[in-house]
Design a protein around this nucleic acid. Structure first.
Lengths: 332, 332
DNA sequence: TTGAAAGCGCTAACAC
DNA sequence: GTGTTAGCGCTTTCAA
């Protein structure tokens, strides 16, 4: 049999389609009798609203797009995505909103996202890992749709609200700790310099070290394990007497660890190694990584809250930066 | 200004809405003149089709749901998800289908998924990590919607088509290799026994070892690192003279490694350690893990192909099991 | 408090 | 080849 429509329910309940719609949407102008009859009819017929039809008239899609702006290959290499995605799905589901995932790695992808949003198929956009200068950000903003970012969008901090950890403060914690441990020559492996984690963790590093944070002691990675390995190799070649390294992510730290070990350096005896994120890998390396924990689940929660507020019509919602925590393990 | 509709385009092009619809949908009965005028009008007005309106009449949603059946907390702990999700999004986007993600951890979740699908909001369902006996599987099957699973659904192998690696063969490869290396007392840490990876990798293990695969040498984990640690501890306590361990996943192997090291066992000298998946962690442990590579990207591709064929109306599409490859590193 | 009816934007059948 | 038109299933005035 065909799927029952509001029409069938109305017939079964002996009321009009308008009334059925009213009880469906919790309108208060419905008599108890009509409501009861309708509810019974809904149960009997096994009726399920057709969101498509509803969307057509309400102009609301009932879904949110999550845009992953990382180039294809690297997406998800970062273990941090997991928590964010899980949290987003859950929070959205509570509001009966669904999560549509899109990748925006190249121009074609960005175009697809834009068409999708312009087509009115999303009530909000959740940006992940957006790099500075991404044209999609402004394009999206022009569409006048609620947009939020998990982690700041460099250069658009004031136009796209976000929730993030205190990147700079976290990096300061780690650097200060390394200094307090008596380390004299501390190097850093940063993330990409067009991401907040790349820029701000380096800022925190130089905040503490001042002029001791010389160019020679800084290398850039791209968050991958492999980039950590090679950055560490360059660092070691240039400054063999390094006695500490702060990698801007645990994954890169794990890469650096491989290089250090291959070079015959003992960790932490010869070189102390610090990571960032407190992701799963931090526990699986040997020695386990001293790292900076960022409250990922809470960041995701807050990001969603901002988006939902925006969708509910809030004009402007402030961004938030949550405190990090230094987790000392065996690598320092 | 309001978003232009097919009506505006028709007016601008000087044709009827029907004609616009025809060029939009690639109908062949359109004169070149009309087509050109329409295309120009589309460009001029910045028109984007409203999929909602289209869905309402075509009864097609233009999206596919990916259902993650893992209990909430564990989702994504498995690094294998990443590749699957990425591949799915990409393949679907090529067909202009979008990917909606839903979690089905508890009864309420399953109900939501079912309502969504029954509501006609998905043209197909992609199952991930479904456990044996999951009631959602049969419920979904009853809805008569294309359903495919990434990895077999235990107990429903013949009703839900799937793509997977040759789980059993892969486990045989590893076990045989361990035997060939001269290991005498080989233990195994399996996955959950209601998943294909849990069951079939153990089968491969016993296939090779025969009665030497005694109960004493088998422990069950749940794919997490922690479960690998504790399973290893139980194994060691029961049989201190173990000289090899085959963990059904790299993540669990990395947990086992921690326990082995804490117990003073050298890997691989005292105990050889094999994993499964060839995920990122396999390279980040020390020593790097010997493991069984499963062609994740291809498995995901094939899964999507099956689903798309089904959506295109194919009656029955055969499941596939792709060959694995033994990757020898330093842990054996 | 309720019913009737006008669309939301699009596709597809039909007539020309 | 092309225009016209009848819905797809729902919400939301407008009257009553």
């Amino acid at each position: 049999m065909k799927r029952p429509t509001i029409h069938d329910v109305a017939a079964a309940a002996g009321v009009s389609r308008g009334t059925v719609s009213r009880v469906l949407n919790g309108d208060r102008y419905v008599s108890t009798a009509a409501r009861l009859a309708t509810e019974r009819a809904i149960a009997e017929t096994g009726y399920v609203v057709n969101r498509t039809a509803r969307s057509l008239v309400t102009q609301r899609s009932g879904s949110v797009v999550m845009v992953l702006s990382e180039p294809h290959e690297k997406i998800f290499e970062d273990p941090n995505y997991s928590t964010s995605i899980r949290t987003s799905i859950r929070r959205l589901a509570e509001r009966d909103l669904s999560l549509v995932m899109m990748i925006a790695g190249d121009a074609g992808d960005r175009d697809r996202v834009l068409r999708y949003v312009k087509g009115g198929h999303a009530d909000g956009v959740l940006l992940l890992s957006t790099h500075a200068g991404d044209p999609l950000v402004d394009a999206l903003h022009d569409v006048h749709i609620p947009v939020v970012s998990l982690g700041a969008v460099i250069g658009r901090e004031n136009v796209i609200p976000y929730a993030a950890c205190d990147e700079r403060g976290g990096a300061q914690q780690m650097t200060r700790y390394l200094v307090e441990q008596g380390r004299k020559k501390i190097a850093m492996i940063t993330g990409p310099m067009d991401t907040p984690g790349g820029i701000q963790r380096l800022e925190g590093f130089t905040d503490v070290l001042g002029r001791k944070a010389s160019k020679k002691l800084i290398e850039h990675g791209d968050w991958t394990r492999l980039s950590g390995e090679s950055a560490m190799a360059r660092l070691l070649e240039r400054s063999p007497d390094i006695d500490a390294v702060f990698a801007a992510s645990d994954v890169m730290a794990s890469g650096a660890l491989t290089t250090l070990r291959a070079a015959g350096r003992r960790v932490p005896e010869d070189v102390a190694l610090g990571g960032f994120d407190d992701s799963d890998v931090a526990m699986s390396t040997h020695p386990a990584l001293t790292t900076v924990r960022q409250p990922l689940a809470e960041i995701a929660e807050r990001t969603l809250s901002i988006l939902l507020d925006l969708i509910d019509g809030a004009e402007h919602v402030p961004s938030v930066a949550l405190p990090t925590q230094l987790i000392v393990r065996d690598s320092t």
